[in-house]
Amino acid sequence: MAINNVNNGLPKAPVDNNKVNTQQQTQQNQSAAKQSATAQAQQATTAPRQDSVSLTQSAQQLSQVQKKSADAPVNQEKVDKLKKAIQSGEYKVDPQSLAKKIARLESEIFGLKS
Rank of each mutant, 00 (worst) to 15 (best):
M1N: 08
M1E: 14
I3L: 13
I3M: 12
N4P: 03
N4K: 09
N5G: 06
N7I: 02
N7H: 07
N7Q: 04
N7R: 14
N7D: 01
N8I: 00
G9K: 10
G9W: 05
L10C: 13
L10S: 14
L10M: 15
P11W: 03
K12F: 12
K12C: 00
A13M: 07
A13H: 05
A13T: 04
V15M: 12
V15P: 03
D16R: 12
N17Q: 15
N17Y: 11
N18P: 01
N18F: 06
K19C: 02
K19L: 09
V20Q: 09
N21H: 01
T22G: 05
T22N: 03
T22W: 01
Q23M: 07
Q24R: 14
Q25M: 09
Q25P: 01
Q25F: 12
Q27T: 00
Q27M: 13
N29D: 09
N29C: 04
Q30F: 03
S31Q: 11
A32N: 06
K34I: 03
Q35T: 05
Q35C: 04
Q35L: 07
S36F: 00
T38G: 11
T38D: 15
A39E: 02
A39I: 03
Q40C: 10
A41R: 10
A41P: 01
A44E: 11
A44C: 06
A44W: 05
T45I: 02
T45E: 03
T45Q: 02
T46F: 10
D51M: 12
S52R: 09
S52K: 12
V53Q: 05
L55N: 06
T56W: 09
Q57L: 07
Q57K: 13
Q57D: 13
S58H: 13
A59V: 12
Q60C: 07
Q60M: 11
Q60D: 11
Q61E: 15
S63E: 12
S63R: 11
Q64D: 11
Q64M: 07
Q64L: 05
Q64W: 04
V65M: 08
V65K: 13
K67W: 00
K68N: 12
K68H: 10
K68Y: 04
S69V: 00
S69R: 08
A70D: 07
A70R: 09
D71P: 03
D71C: 04
A72G: 09
P73N: 13
V74W: 06
Q76M: 06
E77T: 14
K78R: 15
K78S: 14
V79C: 06
K81A: 02
K83G: 01
K83S: 06
K84P: 05
K84N: 11
K84G: 08
A85C: 05
I86K: 15
Q87P: 04
S88C: 07
G89Y: 02
E90D: 15
E90Q: 15
E90H: 07
Y91M: 04
K92F: 06
K92C: 08
D94S: 05
D94P: 02
P95N: 15
S97K: 09
L98P: 00
A99R: 11
A99E: 14
A99P: 00
K100F: 08
K101E: 11
I102S: 05
A103C: 02
A103R: 01
A103T: 01
R104Q: 08
R104M: 10
R104W: 09
L105Q: 01
S107Q: 04
S107D: 10
E108F: 15
I109D: 00
I109E: 06
F110N: 03
F110C: 00
G111E: 09
G111I: 06
G111A: 03
L112E: 08
S114V: 13
